[in-house]
Write a protein that binds this DNA or RNA. Sequence first.
DNA 1: CTAATAATTCGATCATATTGGAAATATGGA
DNA 2: TCCATATTTCCAATATGATCGAATTATTAG
Lengths: 123, 123
Amino acid sequence: MESKAAVNMLSALGHDGRLAIFRLLVKAGPVGIAAGDIARTLDVLPNSLSANLNVLSHAGLITSRREGRSIIYSADFGAMSGLLGFLMEDCCDGAPQICAPLGAIVARAEACDGTCLTEKEPA
Amino acid sequence: MESKAAVNMLSALGHDGRLAIFRLLVKAGPVGIAAGDIARTLDVLPNSLSANLNVLSHAGLITSRREGRSIIYSADFGAMSGLLGFLMEDCCDGAPQICAPLGAIVARAEACDGTCLTEKEPA
DNA sequence: CTAATAATTCGATCATATTGGAAATATGGA
DNA sequence: TCCATATTTCCAATATGATCGAATTATTAG
């Protein structure tokens, strides 16, 4: 990931409303959410939402697809992954042992691979 | 981590110069770098640097300590860790298997514990 | 074709952030 | 004390971003 791309993503996420949108989409997963539903859930004006979705989209953090009259937005997990990787890149250069705590964070994500799949299903 | 704190960190990092500063400090580790050295390394005006260091500091991403005439800045790895955790929080809610790729990122951080120490320089 | 719904684009105003020069503060040495 | 170094603060000009109402495009149904 290039620095410029990372800056775009970070500044896109560095906004109250956009971070809320993104986290909602991350939570929703690849299924995504229609713009109108996002607007209702977060209680924001449709034009403001549209502007913010555009910023997130332009930063590469989300994707969209039309489905009937609605436009469905989804988080781009690959981009998110790239951003996290960029942020901890070179973290070990000076003192590798500092990175250990960061591993715990990753462990939570890895846990999703097994734990969440089996225990999450609400039938 | 509260959403407001995350927004502050992300918007602080969503800036060309500040991201460069932060990554330099992450690379440097807990030893830190003096403000003047950062300015020389990144070739920025001391007052601009000072303003940006203040933003990063206020966001909780870096800490500082005086050492003689210099002020040494260091990345706050705990805060960084908290931010990464916040970003992937609830990621599994909709589709746990999506989180798997994120695990690879963490794996790199964990690898630092052993690998980086022994074969750091790629020549 | 017309009406209704979904979402975006336009345009103006307002607020906030960035920049760089100059001055001020803090520390260490002669 | 006086000077040099290191960093920060102050200030004004400029640029960028956010917000909201109103108009516009796209899609589906009648």
